[in-house]
Design a protein around this nucleic acid. Structure first.
Length: 858
RNA sequence: GCGGAUGUGGUGAAAUUGGCAGACACGCUAGAUUUAGGUUCUAGUGCCGUAAGGCGUGGGGGUUCAAGUCCCUCCAUCCGCACCA
C-alpha cells in the first residue's frame, strides 16, 4: 500500500522548501523579462474566493512563463487605505493602522498557503510612510505641471451627522447611520485634469491590442466624445437685472432637430437658475428638491423628470417670432456641455417624458420611414430619416441638416462647433482620515502653497479619535496648524486625503524597486515595466483602469516614465458565484446546509430550505465559502485545480462542492498511480524507431501537449485542464500487455510532460510526484515540453460526409490526399449508406471543403 | 435610464476562419470489487421514439450547400455608472 495523499503535509513541505531556496526571486536579464501583475487586494481581513480565483489565474501564467524560459516578475502588495478601516475604528475602537496591519498579516499567511509564486521581497502597502512620501512627490509634480487643481464640487452631505458621505453610505437617499435625507453640498476639492487627455485616452485604445475589447468599448463610451453645436438663444424679457446675460447658451449634438424644439431647460445649479432663485421661494424649494436626488448619475437619470417654469422666454434662432419657454429641470447636468439644453420631445426620450409631463408640444421633424411618424406619444424617434417641418432644412437627411444648421449658426454669430466629453475631471480628494494626505498648506496670505519636497512626507497623526463624527483630521488642530512654507505665518494644512484610486494608479511601477527613495527607480522599472499582463476583475473596467491610464500620461509629462500606457495586456476575470439558501428566518450559509438530491436542508434541524439561483458570493446573501476551509479540507492544489477546471476565466464561476470533490478525487487518483509506477530508465533516443502503432500513441500525447500549450497561451485555462486530463486518461488507458521497450519510453515521455504541464496549476503535488521519478531535480527547473511537429504531421484526417447539410457518415484520408478533391468526393459517394440515400437521384451539387466536409445536395 | 457582456444536455462547459454540436468534468443509472479511513473499477447517459428516424445551442425571423458561429428583432440574467475597492 502506498502513502495516502495528505495535501496539507506536502504543501507546507514544498512551500517551506521553495521559500528557503528563494525560487521566485525576480531577476531581470537583457531580454525575455515578463511582468505578471494581478490587482492587489484591499486588506479586508481574510481572502475570499474572488482572490483565490484571480491570484490562481495570475500564478498559472507566471509559472508557465517561468517554465517557458522567461525571467518573471510576479509581485504582491496591499491597497491599504480606504473606508472599511475607518468603519472598523468607529465600530470596534481599533486604530485603522493596527486593524490594517493585522489584516495584512493574516491575508499574507493565507496567500502563502495557496502556494502562489510571489517574490515577497518586493511587497509594500500603500499606507507605508515611504509610499506616502513618493505619492506626495508625484502629486507636487503634477500640481506644478497643472495636472492637479482645486475647485468647488458637489458632495453628499448628511445634515444630521454633519459629514460627507460616500455614495455607498447613501441608501435610498438617506444617510446610512443617521437615516437623514441626504443633501448635496459644494466643497472645495482636489481634481486631476484627466479631461486634458480625453482625446488621447480614446484614440490610444486602438493601440492596446492585448486588452479585452469590451473594456476598450466601455472606456470609449465612458469618455463619451461628441461633436455638436454650442448655440445662443436670445432672452425675450429679462425677469430681473441680476441676470448678466442676454443669452442662454445650450449645447446640442442634434442641431438638425432645432425646428422641433419646444422648450429650453437649464440645470438647477445654472447661474441663471441661481440668480432667479434669489427672489423666488418656489424656485428655491424646487432647487433644493433637485439637490436631494443624490450625486450618482444613475439616481439622476432614474428620477422622475421634473421641471420648474421660470417664465422666461427665448427667441427661436431660425424661426421668426417663435418663442420657447425656459424651465429649470432636474435631468440637466451643469457639469456637461453648458448646463442648458433645447428640448426636442419628438426625437429625445428624456425630452419627450418631460414634455408629456408638462403638456408641452411635440413636433416631429425627422420622418421615420418604417413607422407612423405622425403620432409620437410615448416613444421618441432617434434614428435617421428625412427632415420635415423644418423650413430650409426640409428634404435633407439628419447629417446634412446637422452641418447646415452649424453653418447657419456660425454665420449668424450665435453658435460655434464644439466638442464635448462625458468624462469630467477626476475628483481625487476625500474628507477622511485613512488615506494619503494631500501635501498642501492653505495660507490666508499666500493661498494654496505646496509643501516643499524636503518636508515630505506629510504623515497622518496617530492620536485621533473616531468618536466624533466627521473627518478626524478636521478636529486635530495641532496637526493642522503649521507655518506657511512661503511667508512663515501660521497657516492650515489641507485636511483632505487622496482617493484610494490615486494609490492604485501607479503602484505597478513601484514593484521593481519598492524601497527606492525615488518614487519610480527608472533603471529597475524599465527592466520590467509596463506589466506584460495585468489580471483583475471586470468591475474595474472603467475607473481604476482609466485613472491608471491618465496617471501614466501624467507621469510621462513629469518625466517619471517614457511610455504612454500602464499595462500592455489586460485580462478581466469573472466573479465567483454560489447558490443561495433561504429559510423563513433569512439567508443560510452553505456550511449549514445539507444537500440531498436536488433538495437542501438545514443541518441543525432538517428543515427544508429554498434554493435560489447562483449569485456573486456576498455577505448579504451569506452564500460564501471560506477559501481557508477548502484549503484545510482538500489542500491548495485542489482549490487551484477547481478554480481553473470548468469555467472559462472571463466568465462567472459557479462554486460547487461536488466539483471540488471531483478535483480532489482526481488528484488522489494521480497520486495513487505515481506511487505504483516504476518508470523505466530514460532513453528517449529509441523513440525515433517507433513503429506506426506506437507512433499513433505518441502522436496523441503530442496533440495533448499542443492543445494544452495553445489553451494556456490564449487564457483558456479550462480547456488546458481538459487536455491535461485527457492526456492522463490516455496514459492510464494503455494496458499492461501492450507494453514494450519503446512504448515504455513513450509513456515515460507522456508522464513527464504531463507533470510539467500540471505544475503551474497544482505545483505542490506536481513537485512531489516529480521527485518520485527524479529525486535529484525540481519540477520548477524543468522546461515546458516541446511539441514534436514531425510526429504531428502524419495524423489521419477524418472528414464529414453530409447529405443536405446533415451528417450521415465520415471518411478518413491521409494528409497528402488533402489536395485531391475528386478522391474525397468518390470516397464519400462509395459509402454504402450514402449510396442508399442517393439511390438513382442525381445530386444537384457536391461541395467539397478539402480536409473538412463533403456535402451532397439532393 | 445609459453603457458593456452573457444565454449550448440534469449541471459547469467544449467547438481556429461559417464545415461532424456536447470534448473534459460533475451528477445520474446499471453492474463488479468490498472499500479499511472522503472507496475504486467497468458500461451507459442531449431530447422524443421499441425501431427506422426525427428534434435539438434563450424566443421569433433571415442569409447560406452548410449557422452555436453572420444579420434583424424580442426576452432573460449579470457587471459598471464617477466618494466601495
Amino acid at each position: 500500500m502506498h502513502k495516502p495523499y495528505i495535501a496539507k503535509e506536502i504543501e507546507t513541505k514544498w512551500q517551506k522548501e521553495w521559500q528557503k531556496n528563494n525560487v521566485y526571486k525576480a531577476s531581470a536579464d537583457k531580454k525575455n523579462n515578463y511582468y505578471v501583475l494581478e490587482m492587489f487586494p484591499y486588506p479586508s481581513g481574510k481572502i475570499h474566493m474572488g482572490h483565490v480565483r484571480v491570484y490562481t489565474l495570475g500564478d498559472v501564467l507566471a509559472r508557465y512563463k517561468r517554465c517557458s524560459g522567461y525571467n518573471v516578475l510576479h509581485p504582491m502588495g496591499w491597497d491599504a487605505f480606504g473606508m472599511p478601516a475607518e468603519n472598523a475604528a468607529f465600530e470596534n475602537k481599533i486604530h485603522p493602522a493596527i486593524w490594517t496591519k493585522q489584516n495584512i498579516d493574516n491575508m499574507k499567511k493565507q496567500l502563502k498557503a495557496m502556494g502562489l509564486s510571489y517574490d515577497w521581497d518586493l511587497e509594500f502597502a500603500t499606507c507605508d510612510p515611504l509610499y506616502i512620501e513618493c505619492q506626495q512627490k508625484i502629486f507636487l509634480d503634477f500640481y506644478k505641471n497643472d495636472l492637479a487643481y482645486r475647485k468647488e464640487a458637489w458632495a453628499n452631505w448628511d445634515p444630521v451627522d454633519q459629514t460627507v458621505l460616500s455614495n455607498e453610505q447613501v441608501i435610498d437617499g438617506k444617510g446610512w447611520r443617521s437615516g437623514a435625507k441626504v443633501e448635496r453640498r459644494k466643497l472645495p476639492q482636489w481634481f486631476f485634469r484627466i479631461t486634458e487627455y480625453a482625446d488621447d485616452l480614446i484614440d490610444s485604445l486602438d493601440k492596446l491590442d492585448n486588452w479585452s475589447n469590451q473594456v476598450k468599448i466601455m472606456q470609449k463610451n465612458w469618455i463619451g466624445r461628441s461633436e455638436g453645436l454650442k448655440l445662443k438663444f436670445k432672452i425675450d424679457q429679462r425677469p430681473n437685472d441680476k441676470i448678466d446675460s442676454d443669452n442662454i447658451e445650450v449645447y446640442t449634438t442634434r442641431p438638425d432637430t432645432i425646428f422641433g424644439a419646444s422648450f429650453l431647460a437649464i440645470a438647477p445649479d445654472h447661474p441663471i437658475a441661481k440668480s432667479l432663485a434669489n427672489n423666488n421661494k418656489e424656485l428655491q424649494k424646487f432647487i433644493s428638491e433637485c439637490n436631494q436626488i443624490g450625486t450618482s448619475e444613475e439616481a439622476l437619470e432614474k428620477a422622475e423628470k421634473k421641471g420648474f417654469d421660470t417664465s422666461i422666454k427665448v427667441f427661436h434662432p431660425f424661426e421668426e417670432g417663435e418663442k420657447l419657454p425656459v424651465f429649470v429641470a432636474n435631468f440637466v447636468l451643469m457639469s456637461y456641455g453648458t448646463g442648458a439644453i433645447f428640448g426636442v420631445p419628438a426625437h429625445d426620450q428624456r425630452d419627450l417624458d418631460f414634455a408629456n409631463k408638462l403638456k408641452l408640444p411635440v413636433k416631429v421633424v425627422v420622418k421615420d420611414k418604417n413607422n407612423n411618424y405622425e403620432n409620437i406619444d410615448t416613444v421618441a424617434y432617434t434614428g435617421d430619416g428625412e427632415i420635415i417641418n423644418s423650413g430650409i432644412l426640409n428634404g435633407m437627411n439628419i447629417h446634412e441638416a446637422k452641418s447646415q444648421v452649424i453653418k447657419l449658426a456660425v454665420n449668424k454669430k450665435i453658435g460655434k462647433k464644439s466638442k464635448q466629453f462625458r468624462l469630467h475631471d477626476w475628483c481625487a480628494s476625500r474628507q477622511r482620515y485613512w488615506g494619503c494626505p494631500v501635501p498642501i498648506v492653505l495660507c490666508d496670505n499666500c493661498g494654496i502653497v505646496p509643501v516643499p519636497k524636503a518636508d515630505l512626507p506629510v504623515l497622518l497623526p496617530d492620536d485621533v479619535t473616531f468618536e466624533k463624527i466627521g473627518n478626524p483630521l478636521d478636529h486635530h488642530k495641532k496637526w493642522q496648524t503649521v507655518n506657511c512654507p512661503k511667508c512663515n505665518k501660521p497657516a492650515k494644512r489641507e485636511t483632505q486625503t487622496f482617493d484610494t484610486f490615486v494609490d492604485s494608479s501607479w503602484y505597478a511601477l513601484r514593484y521593481p524597486a519598492p524601497k527606492s527613495k525615488e518614487p519610480i527607480d527608472k533603471k529597475e522599472m524599465l527592466k520590467w515595466s509596463p506589466p506584460d499582463q495585468y489580471v483583475g476583475g471586470i468591475e474595474h473596467a472603467i475607473l481604476h483602469l482609466l485613472y491608471s491610464r491618465f496617471f501614466n500620461r501624467g507621469l510621462k509629462k513629469t518625466k517619471y516614465v517614457n511610455f504612454d500606457e500602464p499595462f500592455k495586456g489586460l485580462f478581466c476575470q469573472g466573479m465567483v458565484c454560489h447558490k443561495t439558501f433561504k429559510s423563513p428566518g433569512g439567508w443560510v450559509e452553505p456550511d449549514n446546509v445539507e444537500l440531498k438530491g436536488n433538495k437542501a436542508f438545514l443541518k441543525s434541524n432538517n428543515q427544508e430550505l429554498e434554493i435560489g439561483r447562483s449569485e456573486k458570493m456576498s455577505k448579504s446573501k451569506k452564500n460564501i465559502v471560506d477559501p481557508m476551509s477548502i484549503i484545510d479540507k482538500y489542500g491548495a492544489d485542489t482549490a487551484r485545480l477547481f478554480m481553473l477546471s470548468d469555467s472559462p476565466p472571463e466568465r462567472d464561476l459557479d462554486w460547487s462542492e461536488s466539483g471540488v470533490d471531483g478535483c480532489w478525487k482526481y488528484l488522489k487518483k494521480i497520486w495513487g498511480h505515481f506511487h505504483n509506477y516504476t518508470p523505466p530508465k530514460k532513453n528517449f533516443l529509441i523513440l525515433k524507431d517507433a513503429e506506426e502503432g506506437h507512433k499513433k500513441i505518441r502522436r496523441e500525447i503530442h496533440i495533448c501537449i499542443q492543445n494544452t500549450t495553445d489553451s494556456i497561451e490564449t487564457f483558456r485555462y479550462n480547456s488546458a485542464v481538459a487536455s491535461i486530463r485527457k492526456l492522463s486518461n490516455l496514459l492510464l488507458g494503455i494496458s499492461n500487455n501492450e507494453k514494450s521497450l519503446i512504448l515504455d519510453q513513450i509513456i515515460l515521455e507522456g508522464w513527464e510532460s504531463y507533470l510539467i504541464m500540471l505544475s503551474p496549476i497544482t505545483p505542490h503535488i506536481a513537485e512531489e510526484l516529480w521527485k518520485l521519478m527524479n529525486p535529484n531535480s525540481s519540477i520548477l527547473s524543468q522546461k515546458w515540453p516541446d511539441i514534436n511537429e514531425e510526429i504531428l504531421k502524419n495524423k489521419k484526417i477524418v472528414m464529414a460526409v453530409q447529405i443536405n447539410g446533415k451528417l450521415k457518415n465520415t471518411i478518413e484520408i491521409a494528409p497528402k490526399e488533402i489536395v485531391n478533391k475528386s478522391l474525397q468526393e468518390n470516397k464519400a459517394l462509395a459509402l454504402d449508406n450514402i449510396k442508399n440515400i442517393i439511390l438513382n437521384k442525381e445530386p444537384k451539387k457536391i461541395i467539397v471543403i478539402p480536409g473538412r466536409v463533403i456535402n451532397i445536395v439532393l
